[in-house]
């Protein structure tokens, strides 16, 4: 006799085998739950360079839906606390998720009476763990992230982080197309860590503006409107929004030689 009233009137396990609970637990929706397999709305390159006393970083304001320039006023440089800015490229919804995660982190950290604000290296470590954990669940946050700021030793800090949890640091950093187009220009200004001591804020800023122009010329997913941030260890963060790529030339390149069958060796 079956003593469990919940099993009365059901097919007998001994005869028909155990009931497969996946059937009753199955979701009654059109699609199964899915992990991110590709980015949807995307932001293109973030570029950054160190100078003697800090870092200059820039990213444009475009959110692309494939080849469609879908959103034209996306802010991809996110300040975190008083001395960190996080620049994010890749999927915009994941960007906004990270933005919220960082905001939550700060609120949580402020609960303790004594203030122990996060520095740039702490934010970078946290994002690295977050991105690596998500890739390990095969459910990545589809972004490349540049963390720029001042670290716990009060020195400029610049590090890169991507959807796989791969992390590295360098005097010049760029995501996406910027890695191919901007990095060679930026490395002319600061190639080694030792070079950084000789780079002024103005030189760094100029190199970033130049790189943003080249990126707008050559990257079809870029726009001419961008934000630029300067993080200085003495004067802190200064944000410049609504900048435009200046002094472009779209003239016919009549004086340029060396293309196609005109090439001379």
């Amino acid at each position: 006799m079956e003593h469990d009233p919940f099993k009365w009137g059901r097919p007998d396990n001994a005869t028909y085998g155990d009931y497969d609970y996946r059937i009753s637990n199955a979701k009654n929706t059109e699609f199964p739950s899915m992990h991110t397999q590709q980015p949807i709305v995307t932001g293109t390159s973030v570029i950054a360079i160190k100078y003697k006393n800090g870092i200059v970083m820039a990213a444009d304001n475009l959110g692309s839906y494939g080849s469609l320039a879908r959103f034209s006023n996306i802010e991809r440089l996110i300040p975190v606390g008083k001395d960190t800015v996080v620049g994010i490229s890749g999927d915009i919804s994941d960007l906004q998720y990270i933005e919220r995660a960082l905001d939550e982190l700060e609120v949580e950290n402020d609960y303790d009476g004594a203030s122990h604000p996060f520095k740039a290296n702490h934010i970078h470590e946290y994002l690295n763990k977050l991105l690596y954990q998500r890739r390990s669940k095969l459910n990545p946050l589809w972004n490349a992230v540049v963390v720029a700021g001042i670290n716990s030793d009060n020195e400029p800090f610049l590090a890169h982080n991507d959807l796989l949890g791969v992390q590295f640091s360098s005097p010049t950093l760029a995501t996406g197309f910027g890695a191919h187009l901007a990095i060679p220009l930026l490395r002319k200004v600061a190639d080694k860590e030792e070079d950084v001591a000789h780079v002024t804020k103005e030189q760094a800023r100029e190199a970033i503006l130049q790189s943003m122009k080249v990126l707008f010329y050559r990257d079809a997913r870029s726009s001419n409107r961008f934000s630029l941030v300067t993080i200085d260890k003495d004067t802190g963060i200064s944000f410049e929004k609504d900048l435009k790529v200046e002094n472009m030339s779209w003239k016919y390149a009549e004086t340029i030689k060396g293309y196609g069958n005109l090439q001379k060796f």
Partner: peptide, 15 residues
Amino acid sequence: KMLFNRPISIQKAAN
């Protein structure tokens, strides 16, 4: 240390 690469603050530990 693992999450933030920083030593825990004493106040936080006590709390």
